[in-house]
Amino acid sequence: MTQSTRYRGRFAPTPSGPLHFGSLVAALGSYLDARAANGTWLVRIEDIDPPRCPPGTDSTILRQLEAFGLTWDATVHWQHDRHAAYQQALDRLAALGLAYPCSCSRKQWQPFPVYPGWCRQGLRDPTKPVAWRLRSDLATRPIGWQDRLFGWQQFDPETLGDVVLKRKDELWAYQLAVVVDDAAQGITDVVRGFDLLDNTPWQRQLQIALALDEPRYLHLPLVVTPQGQKLSKQNLAPALADDEPGIRQQLFQALQALDQAPPHELSRAPVTTQLDWAVAHWSVARLAPSAHRELPQES
């Protein structure tokens, strides 16, 4: 990002359930990074997988963000409105010879560490439904980028395999959708959890293939339980507090999880006061470059 490019960040949850504390840490880190840079902060609802997204969950997430003072600067962006843009990108990749239809099932290639590219030269079984994959063997290599916390990252695309761009059930895959939408929204900085760091090589591959700008990346440590389990909806992490004392406490704990060392008395302050302090004192340099962070204890 050049100095002349105004910061544009985003928080992009999947509405598969209400936000939990791990989600709050990711949202707060993204929000503070944007606000401290006098930038724009956007919210995108990544609902391209309807079976995983119960009706009304998107509204719940937006209410939760507002309750924690994390207000956005433009109309919320829903991925379910973006099918034409994703198809246009896939068509371009196919025209460049970088995407191909694949009839193979996971069961067929399960003995291999990654999909071995059997359909690159043509469908193995034209009678079966097809997914669309990105060719890793034709990618620029190595794929690298400078993470703002974890430093230089480098991957050989072929070790990651030919990622799916469009599924056999006609639903769009995350990797293509996120790249197309980040570019369309002019995102300059992606701040998200460490669990998505290994998705970045595929996204860089797509950005290069589609001649899109590369955002800066900051991957935040994941919050885990004392047993080392990642907080997630799949692991039934509890939803965020919805009462004022609970919201204040969890916001303070999120600042602790982000290594911002908030003063103890801030834990009893209103949300707006906590956020004002956090924006004024936000420092990526304070973040310890570790993949995980244990859930803070209540003050």
Results as ranks from 00 to 15, higher is better:
Ala84Gln: 12
Gly246Leu: 07
Ile48Val: 12
Leu218Arg: 12
Arg133Asp: 05
Leu123Tyr: 00
Leu251Lys: 08
Tyr115Ser: 02
Asp33Thr: 12
Gly39Met: 09
Ser267Cys: 14
Leu171Thr: 08
Glu214Asn: 10
Arg52Trp: 10
Pro270His: 07
Gln274Asp: 07
Pro54Val: 11
Ala288Pro: 00
His77Pro: 00
Trp172Met: 06
Ala131Asp: 02
Gly161Asp: 05
Trp172Leu: 05
Ala26Asp: 02
Trp118Glu: 08
Glu298Leu: 13
Glu66Met: 10
Asp147Met: 08
Gln64Glu: 13
Val179Glu: 10
Ala278Gly: 08
Pro226Tyr: 01
Pro296Tyr: 02
Gln297Val: 13
Ala173Gly: 01
Arg204Ile: 15
Val191Ile: 12
Leu171His: 14
Thr188Ala: 04
Gln227Asp: 15
Leu196Arg: 01
Ser59Leu: 14
Asp242Met: 04
Cys53Ala: 13
Ala269Val: 05
Phe150Tyr: 12
Thr200His: 05
Gly9Trp: 10
Gln234Asn: 13
Arg192His: 13
Gly9Val: 11
Asp162Ile: 03
Ala37Lys: 14
Asp147Gln: 06
Trp172Gln: 03
Leu206Pro: 01
Leu222Arg: 09
Gly17Trp: 06
Val25His: 00
Ala209Glu: 02
Arg192Gln: 13
Asp195Leu: 05
His83Asp: 12
Val130Glu: 01
Leu138Pro: 05
Val43Glu: 09
Arg124His: 02
Leu222Glu: 06
Asp242Glu: 13
Asp213Asn: 13
Leu96His: 08
Thr159Tyr: 08
Leu138His: 15
Gln175Cys: 12
Glu214Ser: 13
Arg148Glu: 12
Val179Ala: 14
Leu218Phe: 08
Ile45Val: 15
Gln88Phe: 08
Ala89Gly: 07
Ala85Gln: 15
His281Tyr: 04
Asp137Ile: 05
Thr2Gln: 14
Ile48Arg: 00
Arg6Glu: 12
Gln110Arg: 15
Gln274Pro: 07
Phe21Thr: 10
Leu255His: 10
Asp276Ala: 15
Ala99Cys: 11
Thr2Asn: 14
Asp47His: 07
Ala280Val: 01
Pro111His: 09
His292Gln: 15
Phe155Pro: 04
Thr273Lys: 13
Gly9Ile: 11
Lys168Met: 11
Thr2Ala: 13
Leu98Met: 14
Trp277Met: 03
Leu231Ile: 03
Gln3Gly: 11
Leu266Cys: 07
Pro18Tyr: 08
Ala131Cys: 01
Gln297Asp: 12
Ala27Gln: 03
Ser16Trp: 09
Tyr217Arg: 10
